[in-house]
Design a protein around this nucleic acid. Structure first.
Lengths: 220, 220
DNA sequence: GTATAAAGTTAGATTGATCTAACAAATTTT
DNA sequence: AAAATTTGTTAGATCAATCTAACTTTATAC
C-alpha cells in the first residue's frame, strides 16, 4: 500500500483508458496524463517492480490484479466524492470533477465510509458512471451510445462519458439530465447529427460528437 | 499565489507556533515540522524571496502580512473542515484532525464556500479555536488556562489547545466537552493537579499537564 | 570574559518526478 | 521488402525537497 499521489494518478489513468482487453499504450497514457513518454516508461518500470503493472519492453501495459484493485479504489473515492458534492453539498455536476480529482487522494477510510453511508450506498455517480465496490470492482451496465440508436426509438439518458465542465454546461443549457426520456426523430446521414425531442422541447439537434458521449438505456 | 503543499505546511506551522511578537526560531520550526534545520533554512530563503517570510540570517523568522494572510486562509480551510466533519458528517472531535490536515490543501474556493454556508458561517471549530475570516485574520477571545484558575471558581470549558486524538479521547472518557461548567474544588500545591466537579461527577482529578491545555471562560 | 553549548548556515549528496536529445524497435505505407 | 512513420527506450539534465557532515554565529555558563 501507500502509493504516492503521482503513482495514484498513473494507476487511475491506466484503469480509465484500458480497452476491453485491458491493454494500454505508453503513448496513450502519455497523452492522457500530459506527461512525456520517457517519464511514463520509467514510472511503468517502477509500478512493475511494485507488482501493480505488467511491464515488458515494447509490450502493451496491463494493470495486475493488485493494480486494478488499487486503481478501482481510487476511482471509488473519486465517484463517491462527486456524488457527495452534488447530493449533499448541492453543487452542479459540471463543477465537481476538479474537486473530486483532489479529494480522491485523501487517505482516510472513515471519511469515505461516512460519505458512502450518508449517500445511502449509491451505485452510480452524478454522471451515471458506476462506483466501484470496496474491492475496487466495477461493472458497467450495458448501455448504448445515443449515436448508435435508430430513428423512432425512445431511450433514457443513463450516463455521460466526458465530465468536462463545457460539455456538462452544454447539456445544462438544454435541460438534459440523467433519466431524461429522449425520442429520436431523425438522423442526418451526412454528418450523423440527430434530431431528438424530449420534455417540452419538440426538436433539438445534437452533433455526432455529442451523441457519442451520451449513453442511453433502451426501452424504459 | 499557488504555493506547493510543502510551502503551505511551512506557512501553517509558522502561523501556529508564532508567539505574541510573531517570532519563530528555525529550531522550533524544525522540531514542529520534523524536518532538519538546514532544510528549514533553505525553505525560509525561498519563502523570503516569495515575500511570505521576513528572512535574515541568524534572525528570528516572521511571516510578512502576505504570509500571514495565506497561512490564515489555510488554517481557515482546516478549521472549517473540522467543523464540517463533526457537524455534518457526525465524526468525533478526536478523529477529524488528520483528515482536515489533508483537506486544507484542496484548491477550490467553491468547496469551502459551500461548507461555510452549510455550517452557517461558524466562528469556532470543534475544539474551540477561532476560524480565520476570509482575509485570513483570526482573533482569540481572552480565555484563561484552567491551570491558572483558583479554588472556588466556576468556569466554562471554551477550547482545547491540543487536538491529538489521545488527549481528546481522555476528555471523552470523562464526558468533558466544550461548554461544560466546571467548579474548581481543590488544587494540590505539590504537583498543581486539580480537583474539579461537573455534571454528575462530584470529584475528578486532572494533572497540571491536562489543565494547561484546557482554556476556560470565567463567569458564565 | 573565555569556554561550552545551542542555534543556524553552507556545501554537497540523495530521491522522486519530470524533461530533452538521441537512438532502437515496431508498424505502416508504398 | 525498403522507406517512412510511429512508438518506445536509454542516457543524461533539471528541479524541489530532503538529508548528513562540517563549519559559523549567537547565547549561556562558569
Amino acid at each position: 500500500m501507500s502509493n504516492s499521489l503521482t503513482e495514484e494518478n498513473y494507476l487511475k489513468a491506466l484503469f480509465n483508458i484500458a480497452n476491453e482487453s485491458g491493454e494500454v499504450n505508453v503513448a496513450e497514457l502519455s497523452k492522457s496524463l500530459e506527461i512525456k513518454m520517457p517519464t511514463v516508461t520509467s514510472m511503468m518500470k517502477k509500478l512493475g517492480e511494485k507488482k501493480l503493472v505488467h511491464y515488458e519492453s515494447y509490450k502493451p501495459l496491463r494493470l495486475t490484479e493488485k493494480g486494478k484493485k488499487e486503481a478501482g479504489l481510487i476511482i471509488r473515492k473519486h465517484r463517491l466524492t462527486e456524488m457527495f458534492l452534488v447530493d449533499k453539498m448541492k453543487m452542479g455536476w459540471e463543477d465537481v470533477h476538479d474537486i473530486a480529482e483532489q479529494i480522491e487522494h485523501i487517505q482516510s477510510a472513515a471519511f469515505f465510509e461516512k460519505m458512502d453511508e450518508m449517500l445511502g450506498y449509491p451505485k452510480i455517480d452524478p454522471h451515471g458512471s458506476p462506483i466501484p465496490d470496496k474491492n475496487g470492482k466495477v461493472v458497467w451496465k450495458d448501455y448504448s451510445k445515443l449515436s448508435d440508436c435508430e430513428v423512432g426509438e425512445t431511450v433514457k439518458l443513463a450516463a455521460v462519458i466526458n465530465t468536462s465542465s463545457d460539455f456538462l454546461k452544454f447539456l445544462n443549457a438544454r435541460e438534459m439530465r440523467l433519466g431524461l426520456k429522449i425520442k429520436i426523430k431523425a438522423i442526418e446521414p451526412f454528418d450523423k447529427s440527430i434530431i431528438i425531442s424530449y420534455g417540452k422541447r419538440p426538436a433539438e439537434s445534437l452533433s455526432n460528437i455529442v451523441c457519442e458521449r451520451l449513453l442511453v438505456e433502451k426501452e424504459g
